[in-house]
């Protein structure tokens, strides 16, 4: 059973890490979580980003957060990636699998997955 003692152990482990994390978090992944995003499948997309960012060991560098409707409901699930000194990248019609690919190629490898980004045709 996932006991409170186990949670306590997580706390002890994290206490040391937190100090190292201060002042980082240069990349922000923002998932649209309004009615439109949720209906289009944003929940598993968000879960995939949270999980894959952690699996890739990017927790110190990348924060995953949620936002409301950005006004392009027909393109949901939408994921925006903000990085200091770079243009915002907007991924559209996202799925959990695509999210995994974006973590691997873009967040880890630094290469935008162009085929999933928004274009003028959308």
């Amino acid at each position: 059973m996932k006991s409170l003692a186990e949670l306590q152990a997580i706390k002890e482990r994290m206490k040391n890490k937190i100090v190292l994390r201060e002042g980082t978090g240069d990349i922000r992944v923002v998932v649209g979580m309004a009615t439109c995003g949720i209906a289009a499948g944003a929940r598993p997309v968000l879960a995939a980003f949270v999980e894959e960012v952690s699996n890739a060991g990017l927790n110190d560098k990348v924060t995953v957060s949620q936002t409301g409707c950005v006004g392009y409901c027909q393109l949901e699930p939408i994921v925006e990636i903000y990085e200091a000194g770079k243009d915002k990248v907007t991924y559209i019609h996202m799925t959990a699998d695509k999210a995994k690919e974006v973590v691997e190629k873009h967040l880890k490898g630094g290469k935008i997955v162009a085929e999933y980004t928004v274009t003028d045709d959308n």
Binding site: M1, K2, L7, I10, K11, K15, I18, E51
Partner: peptide, 27 residues
């Protein structure tokens, strides 16, 4: 609120904490 008491200042959106919450509920 009960989790917070155990965690002190470790945030609830910490990945390992979220995983614990998920597994706890599934169990």
């Amino acid at each position: 609120r009960e989790l917070r008491e155990v965690l002190d200042d470790i945030p609830l959106d910490n990945f390992e904490v979220l995983l614990w919450i998920k597994d706890n509920l599934i169990e």
